[in-house]
């Protein structure tokens, strides 16, 4: 341990130079639990990121977690729980969501546009993955054993 660290240890340690909030939650894959997690998340990060970044983060996480609740965890597969973790990095808010439900279809991650805008028969769905793809960077998915792992970054300022 370097000399300075030893000096900072003890019953009244000096504050680290950069203290940034993070968020970790194990929640039921259920829209009400998703809503509660997002509300708590906003409280945690509100002072640290802009309202715009917070809004984009909340939207992306709502889309991802509601997808887990609707598709992955409803078929009697797994525990019905998911894990959410968000940390602040230089590039943005790095997020990881994992669950032990059924596998994510490969189509979800393929680049996609908006559903066809037929004015006579407007689409009522199909926006979720479009929003996720558009609002995130470094979006990646992998399956680890029985778990789905989805990770991405929400930038502090929107580039497009």
């Amino acid at each position: 341990m370097p000399h300075t660290e030893r000096q900072n240890a003890g019953p009244a340690p000096r504050r680290a130079a950069r203290v940034q909030p993070m968020f970790h939650r194990v929640l039921q894959a259920d829209p009400r639990d998703v809503r509660q997690a997002l509300t708590d998340l906003r409280g945690r990060f509100a002072g640290a990121v802009s309202a715009d970044a917070m809004g984009r983060l909340e939207l992306v996480l709502a889309e991802v977690m509601n997808n887990v609740a609707e598709h992955a965890a409803t078929q009697g597969v797994g525990s019905g729980c998911m894990h959410l973790c968000i940390v602040m990095q230089d590039s943005g808010l790095s997020c990881a969501i994992t669950d032990d439900g059924s596998r994510l279809p490969a189509d979800c991650l393929k680049p996609r546009g908006l559903p066809a805008l037929d004015p006579l028969d407007l689409p009522e769905g199909g926006f979720g993955w479009f929003l996720i793809q558009g609002l995130t960077q470094s979006l990646c998915y992998y399956r680890e054993g029985h778990r789905n792992c989805l990770a991405f970054t929400v930038p502090y300022t929107q580039v497009s």
Partner: peptide, 14 residues
């Protein structure tokens, strides 16, 4: 706050 399911509801009403 509104997500895509909320948007879908608005579209259905329209």
């Amino acid at each position: 706050f509104m997500d895509s399911s909320g948007l879908g509801a608005m579209i259905a009403v329209r």
